[in-house]
Simulated assay, not measured.
Amino acid sequence: MSSPPLRAVLETVASYKPSAGAHGSTARPRPLSANESPHTPLPGIVEAIAAAGSTVNRYPDPGCGALIRAIAKAHGVAEDRIAVGAGSVALLQTLFQAVADPGAEAVYAWPSFEVYPTLAALAGVESVQVPLSDDTHDLRAITSRISSRTRLVIVCNPNNPTGTVVGPEELRTFVESVPPTCLVAVDEAYHEYVRGPAATSALGLCAAHPNLVVLRTFSKAYGLAGLRTGYLVGDAQVVERLRRACLPFAVNTVAQQAAVAALGLEEQLLRRVDSTVAERHRVRDTLVRRGWEIPDSQANFVWLRLGPHAVDFGAWCASRDVTVRAFPGVGVRVSIGSAEDNDQFLAAADEWSSARQTAVAGAGRTRQAGKETEG
């Protein structure tokens, strides 16, 4: 039976596949694959969700008015410079669609957020992927790949999956070098976890650069991953046009009210972020002491340079009831969870290292025995 013709790109575009669930014992899997907050919602957020639930027979506010006012107050920017979407990924989709004239290109580092290539392909935009340098954005190389066809450049900062950052001065110089006809999107989904001099947001550059937009999310530091809410800040004229491309009623009432409540409880939520950052340091320092190569992550995850062993390590962790995110042939991203979750991951990593050392030693003995036999 023939099927209706659909776009040819749907035959080749990669669909998002969550990490395989843990298997082995009947213990609760340790969820360290999706960069979620390990903390349950604060009581004030739960109350806002419950109150909003009683109104779901009505459509949500299509303009997200209360939420936009709260975001504008939090960042000290005008309301007309903010667009809200069903997670920052929905706003990324809007950006790709908004620049998708025939022949348009989008330039971004790779590996980076794994959905970028899919969004580009679905919008009909050609991806130009620029390899990372030492797990970090090579902004000079990205600049060199910008052409007359480039309509969008994305800088994921901190980068997902490596957790590395580019500093504020380096980013400012880069933004200044991009032609004003090209849109620059700085994806700051993990900004709240950044510490030190690199903690300066690109939001401060928006006023001087109308071609710059900055994306944020409530899914990570604010702990609302299940409600899908994100926002974008940029030039008012750009934002006004982007709002036209956003799907009406995309951000539901419960999500809007929960996000408003989260902004009102920001101080408490950011203390939770501090605890995650402390755990990030502990996990990374422990792994480095034990011989692992781990970049200096500024996100709520760490990156293991495992190359061809990435998939095997992911399966190893799953067999020990820990789910991690394996990128075949490249590495493994491990979210920072509760202390107990992290300890179980560290134990699995230790077992892996011991098993690898035993296997290597055994192979060496086999080769030596073979040489002696030949001799």
Rank of each mutant, 00 (worst) to 15 (best):
R140A: 15
R151T: 02
G21Q: 08
L95N: 13
Y231F: 15
R216W: 06
T373L: 14
G370S: 14
R356E: 14
R271S: 13
P111R: 06
L287D: 03
D341R: 01
R216Y: 10
V288L: 03
A50G: 04
P179S: 05
G103S: 13
D343T: 15
G364E: 15
F113N: 06
L42C: 06
A208V: 06
T26N: 14
S2H: 05
L119N: 01
A315I: 09
D187L: 12
A106D: 06
R149S: 13
R145I: 14
D350E: 15
V330R: 05
H191P: 00
Q357M: 11
N300L: 00
S127G: 06
A104I: 13
G307S: 11
L183E: 08
V155D: 05
A100R: 04
E351V: 01
V99G: 07
E240P: 00
G291D: 07
A198E: 06
T200F: 02
R149C: 08
T136G: 11
G76D: 06
T12I: 13
G331N: 08
G24T: 11
D135T: 08
Q368P: 03
S127N: 07
I146Q: 10
P111I: 11
V56T: 09
L32G: 01
A199V: 04
A123R: 06
Y16E: 07
A326S: 12
E374C: 10
V130L: 10
V302Y: 00
A78I: 03
A255P: 09
P102T: 15
W303H: 02
T136W: 05
E266L: 10
G375S: 15
V115F: 07
A104L: 15
L10F: 10
H39L: 11
C156P: 01
G24E: 09
A225C: 03
D61F: 00
V155K: 00
R244D: 10
A104H: 09
A66N: 07
G21A: 13
V165C: 07
R289S: 11
Y116F: 15
R280C: 04
G196L: 04
Y193Q: 02
S112R: 03
A109H: 03
P308Q: 13
A369E: 14
R367D: 12
E240V: 12
V9G: 10
Q256W: 04
A262N: 05
A221Q: 05
Y59M: 13
L67K: 04
